[in-house]
Computed example of a mutant assay.
Amino acid sequence: MTSHLARYRSGQHDAVWRDLRALELDVFNARYREDAQAVAREMASRARWNVETLVERLHADGFVAAWNDDDMTPRPAYLPPTDGSSALADWMEEAFAPFPMTVAAWIRQVGDVWLVGEHPRWAESILADPLVVEFEHILDGGNARAYYEGAWNSWCANPRRQRDWPFQIDFAPDDLTKANISGGGPYGIALAGSGVDGLLGSSKWFVDDLNEAFAAGGFPGVLRSEGYVEPPVGLREGLARDLLRL
């Protein structure tokens, strides 16, 4: 039988994710685990290329990443994995088992991306739900493990919250908060995981969410009620050109 990794490399991306997700927790069994982890690593390698390419194109346009506050203080658009990223992923896989393979691979191989900022030709990019994925630097270089441990302890101490919402590890502000507008809860991965890929709440897979963002050049949203304006013709398409499907 052809491996999932071989199929993935041949371009059968959507079909491979469909088949691996259908395995649910069986994907962690010895029969499937190594092959599924290899697919997750391949996905992360492609995602890193996309992130680096996208950030390079944005910087060439004069884009400046900035904090989502009143001052719009500049900050890095991309931070590669640190020397501690693998240890963080190892801890998450143990503490929150079963932990999604795609999320662990992202933490180890991709790093953190923050596309909130100011584009000289598209001021409204901040209203387009800019791509943000921050697992390691979620507290501006703070201790990510301490942050997630604190979130877990808070969730465990609140029986009502346990009943109404699954625990999740946050990785991005919601679309309104990114634009410095009072919004809802952050985007996060629901735990315990359900298999190879992570779920955002109960409705969208992590990899699908990333594919939507990359297909839109890193800006997949539309906050029309807040003054959103379409980008100049070709800008979004130029950013998305030749980015890889995960």
Rank of each mutant, 00 (worst) to 15 (best):
F206L: 15
G183V: 01
G188V: 09
D208G: 08
D197N: 12
N211I: 03
Y228W: 13
P232R: 00
Y187S: 08
G183A: 05
S202W: 06
E226S: 07
G227D: 04
F206S: 09
A190Q: 06
G183E: 07
S225A: 05
D175F: 11
I189A: 07
P220D: 07
K178F: 11
G201Q: 03
S194H: 01
G227V: 05
V222I: 07
P186S: 14
S225Q: 14
G234V: 01
F214Y: 15
A213T: 09
G185R: 15
S225E: 15
A216N: 13
K204D: 09
D174P: 05
E212A: 10
L200C: 09
P173Q: 08
L176R: 14
P220Q: 04
G218V: 06
E226G: 01
N211F: 01
A190E: 02
E230F: 00
G193W: 00
V229A: 12
D175L: 07
V233H: 02
S202C: 00
E230D: 12
S194F: 01
A179T: 07
P231A: 02
V229L: 05
S202D: 15
G184Q: 07
F214D: 05
K178W: 11
R224P: 03
F219C: 15
G234H: 01
I181C: 06
G195T: 00
I189P: 13
G198H: 07
S225M: 02
A213F: 11
F219Q: 15
P231F: 01
G183S: 12
V229N: 06
S203V: 11
L223F: 02
D197H: 00
A190S: 15
A216G: 08
N180D: 13
S203Y: 13
G201Y: 03
E230M: 00
V207T: 15
L191N: 04
W205A: 13
A215I: 02
V196I: 12
G201E: 03
A190M: 05
E226R: 14
P220E: 10
D197G: 11
A192R: 12
N211A: 09
Y228L: 04
L223M: 13
N211C: 13
F214S: 13
L210V: 11
A213V: 10
E226L: 09
I189L: 08
A192D: 00
V233P: 04
V233Q: 06
L176K: 09
F206Y: 15
A215E: 15
W205Q: 08
A192K: 06
D208W: 11
G195H: 02
G198S: 04
F206R: 09
F171N: 10
S225C: 03
D174N: 14
G234T: 01
N180T: 12
E230Q: 03
D197K: 06
G183C: 08
G195D: 00
L199Y: 01
V222L: 08
F171S: 10
S203I: 07
